[in-house]
Nucleic acid binder design. Structure first.
Length: 205
DNA sequence: TGAAGGATTTGT
DNA sequence: CAAATCCTTCAC
C-alpha cells in the first residue's frame, strides 16, 4: 500500500490541541504554498513558537480585537499579521474555537528556490526562509491570507512528516531543542520555542 | 485623535 | 546597536 501526499494532509482536528503540544509536533511537517499561477513552494518547518491563553506575549492576552480575532476561531486557519511596518508573520491557529492560541512558524527549509527570489540578494539558499519575516517574504504571504483555511486548493496547507523524517527522529539522527521564545518584552521566560537541532535554516540556533 | 510600541531584519 | 516604517492598541 502506497502512502500518497493526500494521506499526509494535516486536518484541523489534529491542530485542535493546545499550541504548546502542536508546536513541537509541527517540526518536520511540510508547509505548502501554491500561487495563483500554479507555482508551488514546499518547505519543512524547522522552528516554531507557541502562543496561548494567559500568555502575556500572546496578541489575544488583553482580549479580542479586530487584528487577533482569527486566533479565537477554529483550528487550522492562518493568522497573519503585519509588524514593524515592514514584515508579516505567519501563524497556524490551534486549540478549540473560543480558545485564542496559535503557533508562529519561524523558519522553513525550502525544497526549492521560488522563481521570484533574487539570488544576488539571497546568496545562501538555506537562509531564504530563516526567520518569520523572511519566511513570509519568501512565500509571498501577507494579510490577504489572514483567516484562510489550511487545505489543498487554498493558497497554503500543511502535510505531515515523511516516514524518513519519523525514522530519523526515532533514531535520534534528528533531535529537537526547546528554549525560550525570541524578541518578546513579556513572557520571555516561557520555554515555548522549538527547533530542529543543527539545522542551517533555523533563524537563531 | 494622537502617541507609543511591536512575535523583525539589516547594516553600521 | 539603531534605523526602517506603518499598523494596532490604548489613553485622553
Amino acid at each position: 500500500m502506497n502512502l500518497t501526499q493526500a494521506d499526509r494532509i494535516v486536518e484541523p482536528s489534529w491542530l485542535a490541541r493546545p499550541s504548546t503540544e502542536v508546536a513541537p509536533d509541527l517540526l518536520g511537517c511540510c508547509l505548502v504554498r501554491q500561487m495563483p499561477d500554479g507555482e508551488t513552494i514546499r518547505g519543512a518547518i524547522v522552528e516554531t513558537e507557541a502562543y496561548a491563553p494567559g500568555d502575556p506575549a500572546c496578541h489575544a492576552y488583553r482580549g479580542r480585537t479586530e487584528r487577533n480575532q482569527v486566533m479565537f476561531g477554529p483550528a487550522g486557519r492562518a493568522y497573519v499579521y503585519f509588524i514593524y511596518g515592514v514584515y508579516h508573520c505567519f501563524n497556524i491557529v490551534t486549540d478549540l474555537e473560543g480558545v485564542p492560541s496559535a503557533v508562529l512558524i519561524r523558519a522553513l527549509q525550502l525544497e526549492s528556490v521560488p522563481s521570484w527570489i533574487d539570488r544576488r540578494k539571497e546568496p545562501k539558499p538555506h537562509r531564504i526562509a530563516a526567520g518569520p519575516g523572511k519566511l513570509c517574504r519568501a512565500l509571498q504571504i501577507d494579510r490577504q491570507l489572514n483567516g484562510v483555511e489550511l487545505r489543498p486548493g487554498e493558497p497554503v496547507w500543511l502535510e505531515h512528516r515523511t516516514p524518513e523524517f519519523e525514522r530519523d527522529l526515532a533514531n535520534s539522527a534528528i533531535t529537537f531543542v526547546q528554549t525560550a521564545r525570541i524578541g518578546l518584552s513579556a513572557g520571555a521566560q516561557l520555554p515555548w520555542r522549538w527547533y530542529v537541532a543543527s539545522c542551517r535554516a533555523v533563524s537563531k540556533p
